[in-house]
Design a protein around this nucleic acid. Structure first.
Lengths: 220, 220
DNA sequence: GGGTCTATGTATAAATA
DNA sequence: TTATTTATACATAGACC
C-alpha cells in the first residue's frame, strides 16, 4: 500500500508493466491534450503497445503534423523518413555495388589489368586459375569443334547422296523426254540449280532436305 | 499566490501561455520518456511551438516509429505510393543484380565453368582473353619475382657483411679477454648467438642491425 | 527564454474488486 | 483487462530572479 518512489527503468513484471502502461498512457494523452488546448499548438503523439497496438493523439490532423515534421526535418538536414523498405533497398544496393566492384576487379585482373594490387602469391594463384580456365576452355572448344566437324561430315555425306539421287532422277527424266521426242533448250541442264528448281514442281517427293543445306561452315 | 484549479482552455495571455507551454512541454516529454522506459515501448512525440519551433521525442528512432505508424495506417486502408526514391532504388538494385549476374557468369566462364552457353566463336574469344590475361599475369609475376630476388640478394649481401663485422668484433674481444688472463667457459663461443647475447650488454654499439636479420625468404 | 521556490492540484502505485 | 480507492509522489501555477 505504501507507494514507493518510482524508479524509471523497465518494469520486469509483465502484469504490472501492462497496468502501468495503461495508466500512464492515459495520463500522457491527457497531458498532451491539455498542452495542445492550453497553448494552442500542433502536436502528434504516437504510441505502440508491446502487443503492437497503435495509439495516437493528433491535435490537428496527424498527417498534417507528420508532414510538417517531415518538412522541418528536411530543412534541418536530417534525412527524411527513409522507411524500412527503403533502408533495406539501400543496403541491398550498397551490398550489390560492393560485390559488383569486387567481381569487376577480379575480372579485370583475370584479363591482366590492375595487377598492381596483387603480391607474388596472389599472382601465382591467379595464374593457376587462368591456367585451369584456359585448359577447360580449350578442351571444351576442341570437343565442340570435333562435334561440329562430325556433324558437318554427316551433312556432307547426306548432301552428296542427295545429289547423286537427283542426278539419277535427272538422267531418268532426260531419257523419258528423249523418248517423247521433245528436245527443248531448257533441258540441256547446263545448270544444276535451274534443273532442280524446274523439276521441283513436278517431283515434290525428291526435293526434301534441300533447304537443310543452308548450314554454314563457319569455323572461328 | 493561491493556485487555482486549471481550466483546460486556451490561455489568452501570451506570456503566461508561453511559460505554461515551456513547463508543460518539459513535463510531457519527461512523462513520455518515463512511459517509454518503464513499459519498454516505442513512441514518438512531436510538438510545434507557436513560433514554429520543433520538439520531438523518439523512444527508438523517430523515423522508425513514424514508419511503423505509416505502415499501420496503410493496413487500415490508406495506401500510399511507394515513393519515387523507393522506385529508383528498386530499379537500381535490379540493374545491379543483373550486372552482377553477368559478371559472375563471365567470371565462372573464365574459370572454365558454365561453358555450355558458349558457341565455338565465343569459346575462341574467351580463349584469347584468357591467353592474353595469362601472359600479362606471368609477365607481372616474373617482374615482381625478379625485383624480389634482387632485393633479397641485396639483403643477403648486407647481412653477410654485418656477419663478417660481428665475427671480427668477436675475434677482437676474444683477444682482449685472453690478454686479461680470463679463460672462462662462456668465452668458448661454441654458439654464436650465446656469445653475441652475452656480449651485447658490454658492447652495445656493435649490436645494431641484429634484429633486421629476421627478414624471411619467402618465395610464392 | 530559463531557474527557483512553495502551495497545491494531479497522477499514479498498490491493493482490491 | 478495467474501475475504484487511498496514500503518496510528482507536476506545475504563480511569483520572483
Amino acid at each position: 500500500m505504501v507507494r514507493q518512489k518510482t524508479q524509471i527503468r523497465k518494469i520486469e513484471n509483465l502484469a504490472a508493466r501492462q497496468v502501468t502502461f495503461s495508466k500512464r498512457r492515459r495520463g500522457l494523452f491527457k497531458k498532451a491534450q491539455e498542452l495542445s488546448t492550453l497553448c494552442d499548438i500542433d502536436m502528434a503523439l504516437i504510441v505502440f503497445s508491446a502487443t503492437g497496438k497503435l495509439f495516437h493523439y493528433p491535435s490537428s490532423s496527424m498527417n498534417q503534423v507528420l508532414e510538417r515534421h517531415r518538412l522541418q526535418s528536411e530543412n534541418v538536414g536530417e534525412l527524411q523518413q527513409p522507411s524500412r523498405e527503403m533502408q533495406i533497398e539501400c543496403r541491398k544496393s550498397a551490398m550489390l555495388s560492393k560485390e559488383l566492384a569486387e567481381k569487376a576487379l577480379e575480372l579485370r585482373q583475370m584479363k591482366g589489368q590492375d595487377l598492381q594490387g596483387l603480391d607474388i602469391k596472389g599472382l601465382d594463384k591467379l595464374e593457376a586459375i587462368l591456367d585451369s580456365g584456359l585448359v577447360e576452355v580449350v578442351k571444351t572448344k576442341g570437343e565442340r569443334m570435333l562435334k561440329e566437324i562430325s556433324t558437318l561430315k554427316k551433312k556432307e555425306a547426306q548432301l552428296l547422296e542427295e545429289n547423286a539421287h537427283l542426278k539419277q532422277q535427272l538422267a531418268m527424266m532426260d531419257t523419258s523426254i528423249g523418248q517423247m521426242g521433245i528436245h527443248d533448250q531448257c533441258c540441256d541442264h547446263h545448270s544444276l540449280e535451274l534443273t532442280i528448281s524446274s523439276l521441283s514442281s513436278r517431283v515434290p517427293p525428291q526435293n526434301y532436305h534441300i533447304s537443310s543445306s543452308d548450314t554454314c561452315l563457319k569455323l572461328g
